[in-house]
Amino acid sequence: MSDSTQPLLKVRDLTVTFGSHRRKLSAVAGISFDIYEGETLGLVGESGCGKSTTGKALMRIVEPSSGTIELEGIELTTKKGKDLRNFRTRMQMIFQDPISSLNPRRRVKDIVAEPLDCWKTVEGAEREALVNDLLSKVGIDPVAYGDRYARQFSGGQCQRISIARSLAMRPKLLICDEMVSALDVSVQAQILNLLEDLKAEYGLTLLFIAHDLAVVKNVSDRVAVMYLGKICEIGPSDTLYESPEHPYTKFLLGAALEADPDSPIHGDVLSGEPPSPMNPPSGCRFRTRCPNATDKCANEEPQLVEIATGHQVACHYPLSTLARK
């Protein structure tokens, strides 16, 4: 649960720009958020809005163009070389494609031990015991399967192996990027339950990136919504899902279909498609598709402001204020 003291991770004005000159693209265009120890922050938004880039920038897999990232009070963006690698063990990332993120020609035990071998933290029997323990924790029998090659495993099993590997260095923060998106429903449920168990056991804090709004709701304490490189709303998941304040959040949630024949079908459907991030609209980035847009929206960029405790929205006309009129 969020704890009112120092956040574990503090991100301020993070931007990531790809390309140069006229083909410049701000995939992440100045976002700020905190993640508190022990919580799960969900990050949702449609394809291309910058979710993965955000995760990769935190890991420094892509270089941020500006902004700051503080983990446990220590600023990471200026760290280099060994110092940076040291900090990387505090954060781990799990990717969408479970099969291609594992080396098919390595044995499962060696894959899980990759970070241990890289850091030479443990060796010999101790290493073996730790790897076996990790594999058992994710539900893979180390004796029967530890010596097999990754290519012999299904998507769900590969995702279990990725989880085991990510836990080897006992990270504080786990970044999960679409980690169940490629899995079948029956396997997805196993992995989501496993993740919740391990989170409790290892005291993990999670950034859970996904486009599936139901999955995100099930795992997150708080949720941030992105649109075209910006955060438009962030708040406790129940509040955000029940009474969204940003028009985009409302459309996004309205488009999610509940697996229940009695649930209402799509209400208002958002028309059009997101504009190109190469050439984002002035002012509010959502204004070209927003039914409530005014001139102010074209001229002034709305900033993320707190509208209720822990609930922030970047809109000149939050929905609850419109309703009151």
């Binding site: 799960t40 429903v185 029956s186 997805q188 449920a189 989501l192 919740e196 599936d212 709004l213 139901a214 999955v215 709701k217 099930n218 795992v219 997150s220 304490d221 998941s237 129940d238 899902y241 949630l253 999610a256 509940e258 697996a259 229940d260 649930s263």
Partner: peptide
Amino acid sequence: GSPKVSNPSH
């Protein structure tokens, strides 16, 4: 077994 939007967190 499929997550629902109406489910509470966790």
